[in-house]
Write a protein that binds this DNA or RNA. Structure first.
Lengths: 157, 157
DNA sequence: TCTATTTACGAGTATATGCACCTATTATCT
DNA sequence: AGATAATAGGTGCATATACTCGTAAATAGA
Protein backbone atom coordinates (compact mmCIF):
# COMPACT_ATOMS: atom_id res chain seq x y z
CA UNK A 1 0.00 0.00 0.00
CA UNK A 2 2.70 2.42 -0.90
CA UNK A 3 1.91 5.96 -1.91
CA UNK A 4 -1.22 6.23 0.17
CA UNK A 5 -2.47 9.79 0.34
CA UNK A 6 -2.37 9.98 4.13
CA UNK A 7 1.21 8.76 4.25
CA UNK A 8 3.21 11.57 5.90
CA UNK A 9 6.55 10.41 4.54
CA UNK A 10 9.40 12.75 5.23
CA UNK A 11 10.31 14.83 2.24
CA UNK A 12 14.08 14.74 2.48
CA UNK A 13 15.79 16.19 -0.51
CA UNK A 14 18.48 13.93 -1.89
CA UNK A 15 20.73 16.94 -2.03
CA UNK A 16 20.62 16.97 1.78
CA UNK A 17 22.97 14.05 2.02
CA UNK A 18 25.55 15.50 -0.30
CA UNK A 19 25.61 18.31 2.23
CA UNK A 20 25.86 15.92 5.17
CA UNK A 21 28.84 14.28 3.50
CA UNK A 22 30.61 17.57 4.15
CA UNK A 23 29.73 17.50 7.85
CA UNK A 24 32.65 18.97 9.77
CA UNK A 25 32.13 16.55 12.63
CA UNK A 26 31.95 13.50 10.39
CA UNK A 27 35.03 14.44 8.38
CA UNK A 28 37.13 15.31 11.38
CA UNK A 29 36.20 12.07 13.08
CA UNK A 30 36.88 10.08 9.94
CA UNK A 31 40.31 11.64 9.58
CA UNK A 32 40.96 11.11 13.28
CA UNK A 33 40.16 7.43 12.97
CA UNK A 34 42.40 6.75 10.04
CA UNK A 35 45.29 8.84 11.35
CA UNK A 36 44.95 7.38 14.83
CA UNK A 37 45.18 3.91 13.35
CA UNK A 38 48.34 4.89 11.52
CA UNK A 39 49.99 6.22 14.65
CA UNK A 40 48.77 3.24 16.66
CA UNK A 41 50.29 0.88 14.09
CA UNK A 42 53.55 2.79 14.19
CA UNK A 43 53.92 2.32 17.92
CA UNK A 44 52.31 -1.05 18.39
CA UNK A 45 55.74 -2.73 18.48
CA UNK A 46 56.52 -0.92 21.74
CA UNK A 47 53.03 -1.25 23.22
CA UNK A 48 51.98 2.37 23.00
CA UNK A 49 49.05 3.98 21.25
CA UNK A 50 49.14 7.34 19.57
CA UNK A 51 46.96 8.82 22.29
CA UNK A 52 49.26 7.43 24.95
CA UNK A 53 52.29 8.92 23.28
CA UNK A 54 50.50 12.25 23.42
CA UNK A 55 49.82 11.70 27.09
CA UNK A 56 53.47 11.04 27.85
CA UNK A 57 54.64 13.95 25.70
CA UNK A 58 52.21 16.29 27.42
CA UNK A 59 53.17 15.03 30.84
CA UNK A 60 56.80 15.59 29.91
CA UNK A 61 56.01 19.12 28.84
CA UNK A 62 53.84 20.15 31.77
CA UNK A 63 54.76 17.83 34.63
CA UNK A 64 54.04 18.41 37.46
CA UNK A 65 50.50 19.55 36.74
CA UNK A 66 47.03 18.95 38.11
CA UNK A 67 44.64 16.68 36.24
CA UNK A 68 42.15 19.47 35.61
CA UNK A 69 44.78 21.89 34.33
CA UNK A 70 46.23 19.28 32.02
CA UNK A 71 42.76 18.45 30.77
CA UNK A 72 42.16 22.11 29.95
CA UNK A 73 45.38 22.35 28.00
CA UNK A 74 44.62 19.17 26.07
CA UNK A 75 41.02 20.20 25.44
CA UNK A 76 39.71 17.02 27.03
CA UNK A 77 37.14 16.32 29.65
CA UNK A 78 38.66 16.14 33.11
CA UNK A 79 37.18 12.71 33.77
CA UNK A 80 38.40 11.40 30.43
CA UNK A 81 41.96 12.43 31.15
CA UNK A 82 41.75 10.96 34.64
CA UNK A 83 40.75 7.62 33.22
CA UNK A 84 43.20 7.74 30.31
CA UNK A 85 46.03 8.21 32.76
CA UNK A 86 45.18 4.93 34.47
CA UNK A 87 46.81 2.54 31.96
CA UNK A 88 49.89 4.79 31.96
CA UNK A 89 49.98 4.60 35.75
CA UNK A 90 49.62 0.83 35.66
CA UNK A 91 52.54 0.68 33.23
CA UNK A 92 54.53 2.88 35.58
CA UNK A 93 55.04 5.70 33.09
CA UNK A 94 53.09 8.23 35.08
CA UNK A 95 52.47 8.87 38.75
CA UNK A 96 49.44 10.72 40.08
CA UNK A 97 50.04 12.08 43.56
CA UNK A 98 48.08 14.07 46.08
CA UNK A 99 48.77 17.79 45.85
CA UNK A 100 49.30 20.28 48.66
CA UNK A 101 45.80 21.41 47.94
CA UNK A 102 44.40 18.06 48.88
CA UNK A 103 41.60 18.31 46.39
CA UNK A 104 44.08 18.10 43.54
CA UNK A 105 45.94 15.22 41.96
CA UNK A 106 49.34 15.98 40.50
CA UNK A 107 50.43 14.25 37.30
CA UNK A 108 54.12 13.42 36.99
CA UNK A 109 56.06 11.64 34.30
CA UNK A 110 58.25 8.96 35.85
CA UNK A 111 61.75 8.02 34.75
CA UNK A 112 60.30 4.93 33.13
CA UNK A 113 57.87 7.24 31.35
CA UNK A 114 60.71 9.42 30.10
CA UNK A 115 62.50 6.36 28.78
CA UNK A 116 59.35 5.13 27.07
CA UNK A 117 58.84 8.54 25.52
CA UNK A 118 62.38 8.50 24.23
CA UNK A 119 61.86 5.01 22.83
CA UNK A 120 58.65 6.10 21.14
CA UNK A 121 59.92 9.35 19.74
CA UNK A 122 61.55 8.03 16.54
CA UNK A 123 58.46 5.95 15.78
CA UNK A 124 56.26 8.98 16.30
CA UNK A 125 58.59 11.10 14.21
CA UNK A 126 58.42 8.66 11.33
CA UNK A 127 54.64 8.45 11.42
CA UNK A 128 54.40 12.21 11.54
CA UNK A 129 56.74 12.57 8.57
CA UNK A 130 54.91 9.86 6.66
CA UNK A 131 51.63 11.69 7.02
CA UNK A 132 53.25 14.97 6.08
CA UNK A 133 54.78 13.32 3.04
CA UNK A 134 51.53 11.71 1.96
CA UNK A 135 49.75 15.04 2.07
CA UNK A 136 52.54 17.21 0.83
CA UNK A 137 54.24 19.55 3.23
CA UNK A 138 52.32 22.63 2.10
CA UNK A 139 48.95 20.98 2.40
CA UNK A 140 49.82 19.52 5.76
CA UNK A 141 50.94 22.87 7.16
CA UNK A 142 47.84 24.53 5.86
CA UNK A 143 45.61 21.86 7.38
CA UNK A 144 47.27 22.00 10.78
CA UNK A 145 47.01 25.75 10.79
CA UNK A 146 43.31 25.62 9.92
CA UNK A 147 42.69 23.00 12.58
CA UNK A 148 44.45 25.10 15.22
CA UNK A 149 42.35 28.03 14.18
CA UNK A 150 39.22 25.92 14.44
CA UNK A 151 40.12 24.82 17.95
CA UNK A 152 40.77 28.40 18.99
CA UNK A 153 37.50 29.61 17.55
CA UNK A 154 35.48 26.81 19.13
CA UNK A 155 37.01 27.49 22.50
CA UNK A 156 36.47 31.20 22.20
CA UNK A 157 32.71 30.83 21.91
CA UNK B 1 72.35 9.52 44.03
CA UNK B 2 71.38 11.69 41.14
CA UNK B 3 73.83 12.38 38.38
CA UNK B 4 75.64 9.07 38.74
CA UNK B 5 77.82 8.41 35.76
CA UNK B 6 76.08 5.17 34.91
CA UNK B 7 72.66 6.83 35.00
CA UNK B 8 71.22 6.44 31.52
CA UNK B 9 68.72 9.26 31.85
CA UNK B 10 66.86 10.01 28.70
CA UNK B 11 68.21 13.00 26.91
CA UNK B 12 65.01 14.41 25.55
CA UNK B 13 65.44 17.75 23.92
CA UNK B 14 62.92 20.28 25.08
CA UNK B 15 62.37 21.14 21.47
CA UNK B 16 60.95 17.67 21.02
CA UNK B 17 57.72 18.60 22.69
CA UNK B 18 57.17 21.68 20.60
CA UNK B 19 57.27 19.22 17.73
CA UNK B 20 54.88 16.83 19.45
CA UNK B 21 52.44 19.67 19.93
CA UNK B 22 52.12 19.61 16.15
CA UNK B 23 51.30 15.91 16.13
CA UNK B 24 48.76 15.28 13.40
CA UNK B 25 47.01 12.64 15.45
CA UNK B 26 46.79 14.80 18.57
CA UNK B 27 45.51 17.85 16.71
CA UNK B 28 42.94 15.94 14.71
CA UNK B 29 41.65 14.23 17.83
CA UNK B 30 41.55 17.49 19.73
CA UNK B 31 39.55 19.15 16.96
CA UNK B 32 37.29 16.10 16.75
CA UNK B 33 36.54 16.29 20.43
CA UNK B 34 35.62 19.93 20.49
CA UNK B 35 33.60 19.81 17.27
CA UNK B 36 31.87 16.61 18.31
CA UNK B 37 30.82 18.29 21.53
CA UNK B 38 29.41 21.19 19.58
CA UNK B 39 27.36 18.94 17.33
CA UNK B 40 26.29 16.83 20.28
CA UNK B 41 25.09 19.94 22.10
CA UNK B 42 23.20 21.08 19.03
CA UNK B 43 21.20 17.88 18.86
CA UNK B 44 20.90 17.02 22.53
CA UNK B 45 17.37 18.48 22.61
CA UNK B 46 16.17 15.73 20.29
CA UNK B 47 18.28 12.97 21.83
CA UNK B 48 20.74 12.47 18.99
CA UNK B 49 24.51 12.73 18.95
CA UNK B 50 26.52 14.05 16.07
CA UNK B 51 27.81 10.57 15.30
CA UNK B 52 24.30 9.23 15.30
CA UNK B 53 23.12 11.91 12.91
CA UNK B 54 25.92 10.80 10.60
CA UNK B 55 24.75 7.23 10.95
CA UNK B 56 21.19 8.12 9.97
CA UNK B 57 22.32 10.36 7.11
CA UNK B 58 24.59 7.63 5.77
CA UNK B 59 21.89 5.00 6.12
CA UNK B 60 19.56 7.33 4.25
CA UNK B 61 22.10 7.74 1.48
CA UNK B 62 23.11 4.11 1.09
CA UNK B 63 20.24 2.06 2.50
CA UNK B 64 19.92 -0.85 1.93
CA UNK B 65 23.56 -1.76 2.41
CA UNK B 66 25.57 -4.42 4.23
CA UNK B 67 27.33 -3.56 7.47
CA UNK B 68 30.75 -4.22 6.03
CA UNK B 69 30.17 -2.14 2.92
CA UNK B 70 28.82 0.76 4.96
CA UNK B 71 31.83 0.51 7.26
CA UNK B 72 34.17 0.73 4.27
CA UNK B 73 32.42 3.83 2.99
CA UNK B 74 32.50 5.47 6.39
CA UNK B 75 36.12 4.47 7.00
CA UNK B 76 35.22 2.71 10.23
CA UNK B 77 35.96 -0.68 11.59
CA UNK B 78 33.23 -3.15 10.76
CA UNK B 79 32.76 -4.16 14.37
CA UNK B 80 32.56 -0.54 15.46
CA UNK B 81 29.80 0.22 13.00
CA UNK B 82 27.93 -2.91 14.01
CA UNK B 83 27.94 -1.81 17.61
CA UNK B 84 27.18 1.84 16.86
CA UNK B 85 24.08 0.75 14.98
CA UNK B 86 22.70 -0.91 18.08
CA UNK B 87 21.39 2.19 19.88
CA UNK B 88 19.83 3.31 16.59
CA UNK B 89 18.14 -0.07 16.28
CA UNK B 90 16.88 0.11 19.84
CA UNK B 91 15.44 3.53 19.08
CA UNK B 92 13.77 2.10 16.00
CA UNK B 93 15.56 4.37 13.55
CA UNK B 94 17.40 1.60 11.81
CA UNK B 95 16.69 -2.02 11.04
CA UNK B 96 19.37 -4.62 10.44
CA UNK B 97 18.04 -7.62 8.55
CA UNK B 98 19.42 -10.88 7.23
CA UNK B 99 20.53 -10.61 3.62
CA UNK B 100 19.99 -13.09 0.78
CA UNK B 101 23.60 -13.96 1.26
CA UNK B 102 22.93 -15.18 4.74
CA UNK B 103 26.35 -14.10 5.99
CA UNK B 104 25.40 -10.49 5.51
CA UNK B 105 23.32 -8.10 7.58
CA UNK B 106 21.47 -5.40 5.68
CA UNK B 107 21.18 -1.93 7.17
CA UNK B 108 17.95 -0.07 6.46
CA UNK B 109 16.73 3.33 7.60
CA UNK B 110 13.19 2.99 8.98
CA UNK B 111 10.40 5.49 8.51
CA UNK B 112 10.94 6.58 12.10
CA UNK B 113 14.60 7.03 11.21
CA UNK B 114 13.71 9.20 8.24
CA UNK B 115 11.51 11.35 10.43
CA UNK B 116 14.25 11.67 13.02
CA UNK B 117 16.72 12.61 10.32
CA UNK B 118 14.34 15.26 9.07
CA UNK B 119 13.88 16.56 12.61
CA UNK B 120 17.64 16.68 13.14
CA UNK B 121 18.52 18.25 9.84
CA UNK B 122 17.93 21.93 10.74
CA UNK B 123 19.88 21.47 13.97
CA UNK B 124 22.74 19.88 12.08
CA UNK B 125 22.58 22.61 9.46
CA UNK B 126 22.86 25.31 12.07
CA UNK B 127 25.81 23.66 13.80
CA UNK B 128 27.52 23.21 10.47
CA UNK B 129 26.97 26.85 9.56
CA UNK B 130 28.10 28.00 12.98
CA UNK B 131 31.40 26.19 12.62
CA UNK B 132 31.83 27.49 9.10
CA UNK B 133 31.13 30.99 10.33
CA UNK B 134 33.53 30.74 13.24
CA UNK B 135 36.33 29.66 10.94
CA UNK B 136 35.47 31.79 8.00
CA UNK B 137 34.09 30.17 4.88
CA UNK B 138 37.38 30.18 3.02
CA UNK B 139 39.32 28.63 5.85
CA UNK B 140 36.64 26.04 6.41
CA UNK B 141 36.56 25.02 2.76
CA UNK B 142 40.31 24.80 2.67
CA UNK B 143 40.40 22.69 5.81
CA UNK B 144 37.72 20.27 4.61
CA UNK B 145 39.48 19.91 1.31
CA UNK B 146 42.79 19.15 3.01
CA UNK B 147 41.14 16.67 5.34
CA UNK B 148 39.50 14.87 2.42
CA UNK B 149 42.84 14.74 0.72
CA UNK B 150 44.42 13.34 3.87
CA UNK B 151 41.80 10.61 4.09
CA UNK B 152 42.34 9.69 0.45
CA UNK B 153 46.09 9.55 0.85
CA UNK B 154 45.92 7.47 4.01
CA UNK B 155 43.59 5.00 2.37
CA UNK B 156 45.69 4.80 -0.74
CA UNK B 157 48.72 3.55 1.18
C1' DT C 1 31.20 -33.05 -5.33
C1' DC C 2 34.32 -32.48 -1.55
C1' DT C 3 37.74 -29.69 0.44
C1' DA C 4 40.17 -25.40 1.23
C1' DT C 5 39.78 -20.69 1.22
C1' DT C 6 37.62 -16.47 1.49
C1' DT C 7 34.09 -13.53 3.25
C1' DA C 8 30.70 -11.46 6.61
C1' DC C 9 29.78 -11.14 10.98
C1' DG C 10 29.63 -11.42 16.33
C1' DA C 11 31.73 -11.53 21.07
C1' DG C 12 35.41 -10.51 24.27
C1' DT C 13 38.62 -7.19 25.75
C1' DA C 14 40.67 -2.70 26.24
C1' DT C 15 40.95 2.10 25.57
C1' DA C 16 38.69 6.84 24.53
C1' DT C 17 35.10 10.09 25.36
C1' DG C 18 31.88 13.00 28.02
C1' DC C 19 27.64 13.88 30.98
C1' DA C 20 25.20 13.68 35.52
C1' DC C 21 25.73 13.19 40.10
C1' DC C 22 28.35 12.81 44.31
C1' DT C 23 32.16 13.83 47.90
C1' DA C 24 35.94 16.21 49.89
C1' DT C 25 38.43 20.33 50.39
C1' DT C 26 39.28 25.15 49.95
C1' DA C 27 37.86 29.90 49.65
C1' DT C 28 34.51 33.52 50.64
C1' DC C 29 31.17 36.13 53.10
C1' DT C 30 28.87 37.73 57.10
C1' DA D 1 34.27 31.25 63.52
C1' DG D 2 30.39 29.40 61.05
C1' DA D 3 27.67 29.12 56.96
C1' DT D 4 27.92 29.26 52.00
C1' DA D 5 29.88 28.98 47.65
C1' DA D 6 33.37 27.47 44.55
C1' DT D 7 36.73 24.05 43.09
C1' DA D 8 39.04 19.37 42.18
C1' DG D 9 38.11 14.78 41.61
C1' DG D 10 35.76 10.26 41.35
C1' DT D 11 31.99 6.90 39.88
C1' DG D 12 28.22 5.28 37.12
C1' DC D 13 26.46 5.14 32.74
C1' DA D 14 26.37 5.23 27.76
C1' DT D 15 28.55 5.57 23.50
C1' DA D 16 32.75 5.31 20.21
C1' DT D 17 36.68 2.80 18.58
C1' DA D 18 39.41 -1.18 17.01
C1' DC D 19 42.00 -5.67 17.57
C1' DT D 20 41.76 -10.73 18.29
C1' DC D 21 39.51 -14.78 17.93
C1' DG D 22 35.73 -17.67 16.67
C1' DT D 23 31.56 -19.17 13.62
C1' DA D 24 28.77 -19.64 9.66
C1' DA D 25 28.11 -19.25 4.88
C1' DA D 26 29.61 -18.75 0.17
C1' DT D 27 33.20 -19.44 -3.27
C1' DA D 28 37.12 -21.51 -5.60
C1' DG D 29 39.87 -25.46 -6.71
C1' DA D 30 40.85 -30.23 -7.29
Amino acid sequence: MKGKIKDPKPQIDLKAFAECGQCTCFNLRKASRIVTQYFDDSMRSIGLRGTQFTLLASAFAYSPITVTHMAEIMVTDRTTLGRNLRPMEKSGFIKVELGDDRRTRIVKLTDAGKEKLQEAYPLWKKAQQDVKMKMGSQNWSSMISKISNLIDQMQGS
